[in-house]
Design a protein around this nucleic acid. Structure first.
Lengths: 137, 137
DNA sequence: ACCACTAGTGGATAACGTCCTATAGCGGAG
DNA sequence: CTCCGCTATAGGACGTTATCCACTAGTGGT
């Protein structure tokens, strides 16, 4: 079997969870981008690896344009200025929508897993082409 | 609250499942693209709507280049020529990898759902910021 | 002075899905 | 007979999203 390192099946391209993850973390309280990245990295959704900061920052700006999060600059503490984000009511509504969507998505994956585990078993067990699934459809 | 019609949270962009879905369907036996699209549409992963044929065809060609599926032309029946695809052993291995990946992914979604449902409840519950500001750098 | 860490960003690229359009075979309505 | 519509496949253009690389800037340690 070939190496599936850069095949989507290896999971490298399964994403789309950055935004709901951000919203989830922000739901616990305002936070600035850098800490957010750290939290996301420890969230399990990231499977151990720190998410790309650029992606997080861009998602934040996008969500800010959508009024899902509001931002302010914090220059009080030490170090560089921090961009602190907090959820807006719209962001909370968005998160609730995400919960519904992800629940549906989870069901879809469940169903797909059942379908996937149905047939493939062994590499040569498909000698039932004559078995005819008579009814059906 | 704004309309979330074109927000990712509405689920319109949750995808990445076309490839494993194709592999799953093909695991049950060879099929040509058009029927495949129909099957995928009735699979629940598609939430009722037929997947975009172009996307399916492109995924098929991509997977053909990766030797995950093999194709032949069927001109025996009536109507236009049909491109019939079947899984290769590599394709079956890929599907098994997908099963592992999606299982992991499902766990990540579960965890994210737990996190998401943790805090947001009402719009005013986050009055605990003073509680633990002391420690931590 | 140099370097590492914190904090935030822009550019380029690639993957993937989606909309619109085009083709070819073929069967039925007018 | 022509037009229409369904089956079946495919290309072009576009938008979104993630990732890699490089950059600015503050702060403190060697």
């Amino acid at each position: 079997m070939p190496d599936f390192e850069r095949c989507p099946c290896a999971g490298g391209t399964l994403d789309k969870l950055v935004r709901p993850a951000i919203l989830s973390v922000l739901a616990a309280g305002p936070l600035h981008g850098y800490r957010l990245v750290e939290k996301l990295g420890s969230l399990g959704v990231s499977r151990g690896v720190q998410p790309d900061p650029t992606g997080v920052y861009r998602a934040l700006r996008s969500m800010q344009r959508m009024r899902l999060v509001a931002a302010r600059w914090d220059v009080s503490g030490p170090g560089p200025a921090k961009h602190v984000f907090r959820l807006t009511p719209a962001g909370k509504a968005c998160l609730r929508t995400w919960v519904e969507t992800l629940t549906t998505y989870r069901y879809a994956i469940d169903e797909l897993l059942v379908t996937a585990r149905h047939a493939p078993k062994s590499a040569k067990g498909s000698a039932k082409k004559n078995a005819k699934r008579s009814a059906r459809r």
